[in-house]
Design a protein around this nucleic acid. Structure first.
Length: 192
DNA sequence: AGTTCGATCGCCT
DNA sequence: GGCGATCGAACTG
């Protein structure tokens, strides 16, 4: 299993958000398969942190692709994004849910509230806690580590379900959330 | 310098 | 379904 190269992320954000489904995030002894993502665009997307231009917090979104954008939210949780698009073009992908693979017992210790394997990393704040991803990991190169994103040795085919992004108040109706269809590790199941 | 608010989660009803 | 926790960043003046 090899990390994806920088060219993988050097394309439109929506393409990257879809292509990241099924890939593996690794941090230390823990890893998980990406089952849910959201795209945050550089233009015409008021929900994106990059909407009002670069600031000290969000500047990595405007830089070259394949770097993490990690931010702190609600006084308690970190959220993990991967930067897409060429240098100087904003765009990133929020990782919203993982299927736990390695280090499950360690994840359980980090997430004592989780009552099942499904609950371990089925939300953006849960997965950063399960993988011990913190604010200090902002700007990490995911082709180099310590946080890595890789293609699995064997990838089963799957369908992608598209829906609206979760928990935002601006630009709420854009179809920019992507799930592995019917996967039981996603953060919320879609209405039928 | 003060205020507002948020890409969430877990517990309560 | 509703809400409180908890705090950094961005905005206001």
């Amino acid at each position: 299993m090899r990390p994806l190269d920088r060219a993988f992320y050097h394309r439109p954000t929506i393409e990257v958000a879809r292509a990241l489904l099924g890939k593996i995030v690794t941090h230390g002894k823990t890893s998980g398969r990406i089952v849910e993502t959201e795209a945050y665009l550089g233009e015409n997307d008021l929900a994106a942190h990059s909407a009002r231009g670069p600031t000290p917090r969000n500047r990595v979104i405007f830089g070259p692709p394949a770097y993490t954008y990690v931010y702190f939210i609600y006084g308690m949780y970190e959220c993990l994004n991967i930067v897409a698009e060429p240098d100087r073009v904003a765009g990133c992908v929020l990782i919203r849910a993982l299927e736990p693979l390695d280090g499950i017992s360690l994840m359980r210790r980090r997430r004592p509230a989780a009552q099942s394997i499904e609950d371990l990393a089925n939300g953006p704040g849960k997965l950063t806690r399960a993988l011990a991803i913190k604010l200090k990991h902002n700007g990490v190169d995911v082709t180099r580590g310590p946080i890595l994103v890789s293609a699995p040795d064997r990838e089963e085919p799957f369908q992608i379900a598209v829906s609206k992004r979760i928990g935002i108040t601006k630009s709420p109706d854009l179809p920019l959330r992507f799930d592995i269809k019917d996967n039981r590790f996603v953060s919320r199941t879609l209405p039928k």
